[in-house]
């Protein structure tokens, strides 16, 4: 593993270049560029606000701000997995013809989405100041939360990128799974609301390793309080384990991926 990491380090510039390429290709020739990636979450936010705050009357002040605190990190997670899973199979020609550490393909996708996410957080801070929700001391915990989500997302993306080479169905299956997972994560409502209104299903949300991460974002960005360190710490351990597992599985298979693509 150490040898693989050392090689990845040597190819650091390729990782950087591929990440930049990802970002550039995504927004090529569109005048609004990056703002398109804000458009989807903001549109989602508008719809959910309409449904859940006006129709169903979820009693949260500044509900749109709350929504975005969960939707932005969710979008980072969801897009990384969905596009990362085909990162090897869609680059078949490159993979078969040139030697380089293949993990660069999924990693560059995660990194590009992460950059996107950081930019959308800047927009979020603007919104927070305008709306009067404000920024609190708890913001200091944000880098840690970002790191843990990054670890979980990277590990999972590496796993799906490898297995999609062997089973192309995973791409389609993931679409359905991610759709379900969105509603299995407290994004449009809080975890305590689940406990209040649907106690019997609360365990499902608690099993989801994304729950403490998204909740932590909402805590530090919206509620202005530090996260529940117990639940978050446990998720952090899971995230690290997934990252190590993902990297290990990827390296075990990567020598044989070019002939399977």
């Amino acid at each position: 593993m150490l040898q693989n990491l050392r090689e990845l380090y040597r190819y650091g510039e390729l990782l950087k270049n591929m990440t930049v390429k990802e970002l550039r290709v995504r927004y090529k020739e569109s005048a609004l560029g990056f703002f398109w990636s804000l458009f989807t979450p903001i549109l989602n936010m508008a719809v959910y606000t309409l449904v859940f705050s006006l129709v169903l009357k979820i009693g949260l002040p500044h509900y749109p701000v709350f929504l975005l605190a969960g939707i932005f990190p969710w979008q980072f997670f969801q897009t990384s997995i969905a596009t990362g899973c085909v990162s090897i199979v869609h680059n078949g020609n490159l993979v078969k013809k040139v030697y380089f550490p293949l993990e660069i393909l999924p990693l560059s996708i995660v990194l590009a989405n992460f950059v996107n996410f950081l930019l959308s957080l800047l927009v979020y801070f603007g919104l927070v100041l305008v709306s009067g929700v404000g920024i609190h001391l708890s913001i200091l915990a944000l880098p840690l939360i970002l790191l843990v989500q990054m670890a979980l997302t990277t590990g999972l993306t590496l796993l799906v990128a490898v297995y999609t080479v062997y089973f192309r169905d995973i791409e389609h299956f993931l679409g359905v799974l991610l759709f379900a997972l969105f509603y299995g994560t407290p994004i449009i409502f809080t975890l305590s609301q689940i406990g209040q209104y649907a106690r019997q299903y609360a365990f499902l949300f608690e099993l989801n390793p994304l729950t403490p991460i998204i909740t932590a974002y909402q805590d530090v960005l919206y509620f202005g309080r530090f996260p529940d360190w117990g639940a978050f710490g446990l998720t952090a351990l899971v995230a690290i384990a997934v990252l190590v597992l993902g990297y290990h599985v990827f390296n075990k298979h990567k020598g044989f991926l070019p002939e399977e693509v």
Binding site: R24, V25, L94, V98
Partner: peptide, 16 residues
């Protein structure tokens, strides 16, 4: 250092 001329232009970006 090994360099392989297997297929030229693998990895070229059309928009670059």
């Amino acid at each position: 250092r090994v360099s392989a001329l297997l297929e030229l232009g693998a990895g070229f970006q059309q928009d670059y």
